[in-house]
């Protein structure tokens, strides 16, 4: 399996921003400050378990249901 991390990140950004470009950048910045760089993950990125858990935790902190 690959690409799960990108899907999760995209879902966080979409949920928090509603597609608003300003809020998308804001959410992306918040993710980077939390240690997750959205640009590092694409559809082919390996589904690394610890990263997945990290992103799940961040989603929960940000009130996003994955």
């Amino acid at each position: 399996m690959a690409g799960q991390i990108k899907k999760m990140i995209d879902q966080i950004i979409e949920t928090r921003s509603g597609g608003d470009p300003f809020l998308m950048l804001m959410t992306k910045t918040k993710l980077m400050l939390k240690g997750i760089d959205p640009e590092k993950y694409d559809d082919n990125s390996e589904d690394t378990p610890w990263v997945i858990n990290d992103v799940k935790r961040i989603a929960q902190e940000m009130g996003v249901t994955l």
Binding site: M26, K30, K34, E61, M62
Partner: peptide, 11 residues
């Protein structure tokens, strides 16, 4: 700041 950012989009 992280908690603020988690709970709102207000800057």
């Amino acid at each position: 700041m992280e908690k603020i950012g988690d709970l709102t989009n207000i800057l």
